[in-house]
Amino acid sequence: MIATLFVHPMEIPAAQAIFWLLPLTFGVALAYRAMRCEDISKVWHETISLFVKILLGMAILAAGFWSVFQIFL
């Protein structure tokens, strides 16, 4: 199972691809906060905070682009 997992690509429906952004965003937030956090004991709190901020930022951007497409196209 594990050998197949790292040799053959997974089969992911195109509609589900967007949800793979969530763990990617969490990983980016964790690695960045691990570097930048002054008090390492607060790293999880700050990671979750950054994760939420990135998601909100992406949602706002998506809403903005959607509005532009609705109005102009």
Partner: peptide, 27 residues
């Protein structure tokens, strides 16, 4: 000397990389 920080970085980056390899396989 920042062992905890280094371990978190190791886990985060390795998890991201091998999740990618698990999705995409050898290529």
């Amino acid at each position: 000397g920042q062992v905890k920080r280094g371990l978190i970085i190791f886990v985060a980056i390795s998890a991201l990389f091998y999740t990618g390899v698990a999705v995409g396989g050898t290529m």
